[in-house]
Nucleic acid binder design. Structure first.
Lengths: 136, 136
DNA sequence: TTGCGTGCAAAGGTTTTGCATGGCA
DNA sequence: TGCCATGCAAAACCTTTGCACGCAA
């Protein structure tokens, strides 16, 4: 069932690069570029494949792109610590905000009970304009 | 300033095809296919260009794709009638649901006043699993 | 030694661009 | 007639797939 999982230098390189991203969103391309600068030359195909695997395992979270952008990923960690918060993305500056509040949990509950829809906070990104940009 | 805007049969064909979509989401490809079936042969490039223009004008709304899918559009109309509802997209079956309820409007208000974030319902898509798929 | 992992090359799909021609006003 | 609009072809991107070789266990 559980297939063997070889440890290779490529995988560790990708893994540690991913961790340096903190909770920022990143693309496959940005990963490759960053590793390249760090002297690591990892094949793009390998990055695609391993990142996809990490997504499937829940180590990374996969996000839909803003139109025109590529698919984005975010490091979550094996502990899956940030399960229940939401992401707000500013359309102006591109910054990502985390939001964790009672109102949001209530909304999830409301949508489930009244609309029969099981909201997935991991995938949902709320778009809008942040405070800083709105005052410019 | 305001550039001249020639009326062509291509533009009217695209325009009326777009209107037949109601408030459903569609891709460039689906538009082309639909027009092709209707006997209209409009160049793909033209469709891209005109749809992009309609988006910029606010006649169409442009949506981020689910990963792997193409960019989606939705007809809004010059009147911009459906401002305030939200879109729920099922990750399993891909269906799109519209939700228009008080709780949601309250949330928008809450996020604005407590988190300083101006939520944009036009761009935000909530992901999750719909009732039908969740019982399978 | 075994067979998963890697990465080149090529294929696939979507969107954009260059450019000559067509057609609206 | 002037100039925007069109659409073919090709380029530009991003992502996936095929396949032979490399390397961890």
């Amino acid at each position: 069932m559980k297939q063997v999982n070889y440890n290779t230098k490529q995988k560790s390189a990708i893994m540690s690069c991913v961790k340096t991203m903190g909770d920022k969103h990143f693309t496959i391309d940005s990963l490759c570029k960053k590793m390249q600068k760090g002297g690591e030359m990892i094949g793009r195909t390998t990055v695609y494949r391993f990142v996809e695997k990490l997504s499937a395992e829940g180590v990374l979270r996969k996000y839909n792109a803003l139109s025109g952008e590529s698919v984005c990923y975010q490091y979550v960690g094996e502990n899956n610590s940030c399960h229940e918060h939401f992401h707000l993305k500013c359309e102006k500056c591109g910054k990502l905000f985390h939001m964790d509040c009672r109102e949001m949990s209530e909304l999830v509950e409301h949508i489930k009970s009244h609309h029969g829809f099981y909201l997935n906070p991991l995938k949902t990104v709320i778009y809008g304009v942040c405070e800083v940009c709105s005052t410019k």
